[in-house]
Computed example of a mutant assay.
Amino acid sequence: MEEMISFLGPKGTFSHEAASLLGDNLVPYCTIPAVMESIDSNQCDMGIVPIENSIEGPVGITLDSLAHDFDLNIVGEVIISINQNLIVNPGTKLEDIKDVYSHQQAISQCHNFIEKNSIQPHYAVSTASAAKSIIGDKSKAAIGHTKSAELYDLDILLKDIQDVDNNETRFVVLSKDETDPSGNDKTSIIFSIYEDHPGSLYKILGIFNEYEINLTKIESRPSKQGLGKYLFFVDFYGHYKDNIIKKIIMEIEDKTYFFKVLGSYPEFK
């Protein structure tokens, strides 16, 4: 039986595109925590959620949910280019458009285009729902994926209207299962330090330097335990079943107040 894969819906979004790279048996959910809950409750075998964008930065709800709410493993990653398009009703011209609708991140990614053309931006739940909301009104446009236009028989008036060309979003694949080493892996961890004093974080990161392990990302998030208290999300090369990585994990765990391995997974190519 084909695995069921949950994703942040609806269909026609960039999350839908990322999920389609994993399989065909796709189930949309309306929030990131709902995607994770679908895996935790065994409704789906795996799920995919956005974790960071090259322009807008980390997706906070994904990081917070992984840290506090769910014990799931990251078993893969997918990186896709985000090319934003101006979606309109058939026959619409640029000068007809007064309002534009899209997800908050898409609006932010196309700020220069919107301002240059004096169009009023409005937030929508998703790029696909934005496309649906403009049907039949030539004074309104949406910003989003080409699939959103296809779903509702709309046209692409202009392609690639995002402010920055190298706009990419990284998604992580979540499961209750674990992965075996592939020889080209990354590991993700979360930790918090005991006290906020000089050198605390440096001592942790120095462990990676000692073993010559390359970090690919470090991100901080409020721990929700008060001002000045943070969780650190770190990605680095290697698999947690590798002997060197096992030593690193043990040393970090001894020096931290909170520690969690989010998973090891093949690097996306």
Rank of each mutant, 00 (worst) to 15 (best):
N112Y: 07
S102R: 06
Q162R: 01
A141L: 03
K203A: 12
S175Q: 07
T187M: 04
I61Y: 09
G263S: 03
S54A: 04
Q109D: 02
V88D: 06
Q43I: 10
F113V: 01
I134H: 13
L215N: 03
F232V: 05
L157G: 11
A124W: 04
L154S: 03
T127C: 15
T169Y: 07
H16K: 10
V78F: 00
L262K: 06
A149T: 01
Y265W: 04
G47P: 06
E3A: 13
Y237K: 15
I39M: 02
I82F: 05
G206M: 05
I79E: 07
I252H: 02
I213S: 12
C44R: 04
I189V: 11
G57S: 06
K116G: 06
F113T: 00
D45W: 02
L66G: 04
M250A: 14
Q104M: 07
V172T: 04
A149W: 02
C44N: 14
N83Y: 14
H16F: 06
D254F: 14
N214A: 06
L215C: 05
S133T: 00
K241Y: 05
E195K: 14
N184W: 03
S182C: 03
D165L: 10
L174W: 02
Y257N: 09
G57H: 07
H197N: 15
M1I: 14
G238D: 07
K217R: 15
S200N: 09
A128W: 14
I119F: 11
N209W: 03
G76L: 09
I61W: 02
L227C: 13
S118I: 15
G228N: 09
I134S: 06
G199S: 01
P198E: 02
K116E: 15
Y230T: 06
P90I: 10
T146E: 15
G76I: 10
G199I: 00
K159N: 08
L26D: 06
Y240S: 07
A128N: 04
I114K: 03
N243R: 14
E251V: 11
N25H: 13
G226M: 15
E77P: 02
I143L: 01
I87M: 01
I218F: 13
S65T: 08
I204Q: 01
L231Q: 13
S65D: 09
H239I: 08
T127F: 12
D64M: 12
I190M: 11
F233Q: 08
S139V: 08
Q43A: 12
I87T: 08
I79N: 04
N73Y: 03
I244T: 15
N214D: 01
Q104P: 05
G263P: 15
A128C: 05
